[in-house]
Design a protein around this nucleic acid. Sequence first.
DNA 1: GATGAATGAGGGTTCATTCAT
DNA 2: AATGAATGAACCCTCATTCAT
Lengths: 226, 226, 226, 226
Amino acid sequence: MRTDSAPRPRGAVGRPAGPQPAKRQAILEAAVAVFLREGYTRASVDVIADEAQVSKQTVYNHFGDKQRLFLAAVEGERERVAARFTSGLTPELADEPKNEGEGAADAETALVSFGHRVLQVLLDERASALRRLVISEVARHPSLRPACADGEPQQLVTHLVDLLTDRTARGELSVDDPATVARQFVALLVQQGLHQSMYGTRPLPGHEAAAICERAADLFVRAYRR
Amino acid sequence: MRTDSAPRPRGAVGRPAGPQPAKRQAILEAAVAVFLREGYTRASVDVIADEAQVSKQTVYNHFGDKQRLFLAAVEGERERVAARFTSGLTPELADEPKNEGEGAADAETALVSFGHRVLQVLLDERASALRRLVISEVARHPSLRPACADGEPQQLVTHLVDLLTDRTARGELSVDDPATVARQFVALLVQQGLHQSMYGTRPLPGHEAAAICERAADLFVRAYRR
Amino acid sequence: MRTDSAPRPRGAVGRPAGPQPAKRQAILEAAVAVFLREGYTRASVDVIADEAQVSKQTVYNHFGDKQRLFLAAVEGERERVAARFTSGLTPELADEPKNEGEGAADAETALVSFGHRVLQVLLDERASALRRLVISEVARHPSLRPACADGEPQQLVTHLVDLLTDRTARGELSVDDPATVARQFVALLVQQGLHQSMYGTRPLPGHEAAAICERAADLFVRAYRR
Amino acid sequence: MRTDSAPRPRGAVGRPAGPQPAKRQAILEAAVAVFLREGYTRASVDVIADEAQVSKQTVYNHFGDKQRLFLAAVEGERERVAARFTSGLTPELADEPKNEGEGAADAETALVSFGHRVLQVLLDERASALRRLVISEVARHPSLRPACADGEPQQLVTHLVDLLTDRTARGELSVDDPATVARQFVALLVQQGLHQSMYGTRPLPGHEAAAICERAADLFVRAYRR
DNA sequence: GATGAATGAGGGTTCATTCAT
DNA sequence: AATGAATGAACCCTCATTCAT
């Protein structure tokens, strides 16, 4: 990357983007919005250009063709979503070191609390739309495979591994292979959450989310309680 | 693709035209094939008509418009898939009264065996494509909601409920609420199967499928072993 | 309806029309309605067939093609309109030998009264639609020329010729060539009526109609008063 | 039809493309030609594009859709026709300050002369086609109402008002309300001209035109001669 | 590097018309 | 004589992409 031909007023030099990084960003954001809203095929480059307040050819100058623009948009949004996970799952809670309850005395309560956080990020509107988009197109765009595999962001699992390890160390649970168990727990929550919310297409009522979390926590505590 | 080799509705061979309700079936089958292959937007009515060896207007005479054709195709394929579940999960095994192992002495073995059957039907190529299609379009076609909700066909869960009830009656397990537990077990399998196969986009190696099933069985046996 | 296929009780044998005269009539009426409503090109044979509650092919059996159906429809409606003129200009007044006022002492009053009747039939909704239709298509269907030439139905002119002759005989007016003068009078009314009603597309307020008639009568009385 | 022989916008010859606002004009001219020839529904955007030697999408880029193109074409042609009236009724006569006879001593001769000019512009081929087109579509495109109301261009009436006022001032006629009388005179000519020429569909023989004018002049002179 | 104009291909839909029953 | 199913040609419109400025 980094083609900067001529002098270019130093300052924003390290940036790896192509020409006019601000426009590139505007295009990317518009592309994300439109692709999430319309899907790959329905999304039109015209609309993206309009929404980015940029000429259509500028889009082509920056991204070459629709497919590459699409992949860039997915990648960008995926990073954005992952960042949300890392930084605390939801923007508002980003600063809190731990959500209430997760450090609670009771392992079951901690799992329930973790479950709620999983569902929260999982069913976020943009994250859901991204997931549907990736599932729609993964068969046709092999480059989406990483994005598809990352459906359950690694951060979530890591976080849960820590939790399980911790509780096992405390003698509260006895989980031998926390990685596997963590993946199972997350998988269970994800599937039930997606299924009941129609893949993020309908809001999940609070009591349904609670039931999913509580039952999952109950299952795992039954299985791994010392 | 497809010049004129294979299936041809069946029945009257000599006269190629006439008021054949078989054409409706041919159109529907072509529609299923094309929609599964291309997705809703990419799929073109022209191609469907060609593939059904029928004029485009005939498609419109039968189904009114693309959306209705689409919904009919989804519904048809959904029934076909459901029928496969009911009649024994896969055509080849349709006659076997029970798969090997499921009636086995060991509850864990039985769960593993059941799990394999679930993954088998789940990852069937057409079923996967249908699932991706439904997920892709459910946000735009509300009529797809039932098809989306039926992601884990009821038959599977019912079957497992029976299994759990049976084992509980035998004193091997102690499951109070078999419906809930069955849904959890299936959900776990489904999510891990879909995730690792990229929603049916890549074949799931046998050992991965086995691991998923064994770990799930282990989890549930741990939790509900008497 | 009369569907009884076979022997057909003779009696209606001489009729030159096609099969099933009742259906023919239904088709014709539907055709008139649709052509007047939609124009020639927009009108679809499907819609006409539906509206006549008849199969599309039946339409073709009776009329051959769309163009012939169109011409038949125009001819039929034209006769209907002409009949309305003859029988008293409007259905309700059909029986009255003369409209009130036309036999009045004053020639001017008689002309005004006649003018109102002209405008009444002229601006009738169906007559207007027919006129627009004929004007639309006369350039493309030479067979419409008679229908176009008959824009000011002969009956109206004849009626006025009588009136003028009568008044001249009475010594009230002195019209040498009543045919010419009658055509002028009608032409003036027609043009102003059509123009102000946008060719029957907007209802003509009573006072506008009155003004047209009064001014026309004034003009002709000024010119031909003895 | 039409391989590539004739007009080609004009101007730059070497480079065939580029941001030429001349294309808009070419499209408009082709649209006028095709709509006048075929009517709204029959006219196809493809044909217009071909005739303008322009891609179909270019038409859409410039005019949005068929209806707007249609309205623009009608409006353009209407202005063209009106310009013809103003600048001397027909291009060839544009320079003559006054047509022969109109300033003649005799009011009747002046009216006859004026009548000829009216018929000349009225029965111009393009003006007639425009009139038929407007009448055809005014019921379906309300934006055509102004064009319909302007069937007798204001310029004609104004001109005649002047004439009548002048003759009245000279004491030759005594017209109290010249505006009304002028409208009547024009209406009479228009209706008889349109009627006898089948709305411009058949050429009006000279003697018929003359008869119309002479009779109309006779009528009005009879009525308003001092 | 950015733009507006232009393009050719193709999409869904509808039409007038004709078979086969 | 009447039907329902079928057809092929068009039509309006939109798309991804590329020139010329």
